[in-house]
Simulated assay, not measured.
Amino acid sequence: MEEEAAQAAEGGLSFEPLEVFNLRPLFGHGEVHWYTITNATLWMAIAVLAIFALFVIGTARRSVVPSRSQSIAELIHDFTYKMVEDVAGHEGVKYFPYILTLFLFILFVNVLGLIPTSFAPTSHVAVTAVMALAVFITVTVIGFVKNGAAFLGLFWVKESPLILRPIIAVIEVISYFVRPVSHSIRLAGNVMAGHAVMQVFAAFAAIALIAPLSILAIAAIYGLEVLVAAIQAYVFTILTCVYLKDALHPGH
Score class of each variant (00 low, 15 high):
102 L>I: 07
119 F>T: 02
100 L>G: 03
118 S>C: 01
106 I>T: 08
98 Y>S: 10
99 I>H: 05
125 V>G: 02
103 F>Q: 13
105 F>I: 04
104 L>G: 07
120 A>D: 11
126 A>W: 02
123 S>E: 12
126 A>R: 12
127 V>E: 02
89 G>I: 06
99 I>C: 05
109 V>K: 03
115 I>V: 15
100 L>P: 11
121 P>A: 07
100 L>M: 14
101 T>C: 08
123 S>C: 12
126 A>S: 13
116 P>C: 01
90 H>K: 15
115 I>C: 03
128 T>A: 04
97 P>I: 06
116 P>V: 04
88 A>D: 12
122 T>L: 14
114 L>G: 04
89 G>D: 07
97 P>S: 10
91 E>D: 15
121 P>W: 08
104 L>V: 09
114 L>E: 13
118 S>F: 11
123 S>A: 15
106 I>D: 09
105 F>S: 14
110 N>D: 14
99 I>R: 03
110 N>P: 02
127 V>C: 03
117 T>N: 12
89 G>Q: 13
91 E>A: 13
99 I>Y: 03
90 H>W: 12
93 V>Y: 11
88 A>E: 08
115 I>Q: 02
95 Y>R: 09
97 P>E: 11
114 L>Q: 14
123 S>H: 08
106 I>A: 04
109 V>E: 13
114 L>W: 06
94 K>D: 15
116 P>R: 05
120 A>E: 06
128 T>D: 04
103 F>C: 09
128 T>P: 08
113 G>P: 00
95 Y>N: 11
89 G>K: 10
97 P>Y: 10
114 L>F: 07
119 F>S: 01
127 V>L: 02
111 V>R: 00
126 A>T: 10
117 T>Q: 10
91 E>T: 05
119 F>C: 01
126 A>Y: 03
107 L>T: 13
94 K>H: 12
96 F>G: 07
105 F>P: 02
108 F>P: 02
88 A>W: 07
117 T>W: 11
109 V>A: 15
121 P>V: 10
98 Y>V: 15
92 G>K: 06
99 I>K: 00
119 F>A: 00
117 T>M: 06
91 E>H: 14
94 K>Y: 13
114 L>I: 06
95 Y>P: 05
119 F>N: 01
119 F>M: 00
109 V>N: 14
124 H>M: 09
109 V>Y: 04
106 I>Y: 07
98 Y>T: 05
109 V>W: 03
113 G>N: 06
122 T>G: 01
118 S>Q: 07
98 Y>E: 07
108 F>K: 01
117 T>E: 12
124 H>C: 00
126 A>E: 07
109 V>R: 01
110 N>V: 08
126 A>G: 14
116 P>S: 02
123 S>Y: 06
105 F>E: 05
124 H>D: 14
126 A>C: 00
101 T>R: 05
119 F>D: 00
89 G>R: 13
108 F>T: 15
112 L>N: 03
99 I>M: 04
107 L>N: 11
93 V>G: 08
105 F>Q: 12
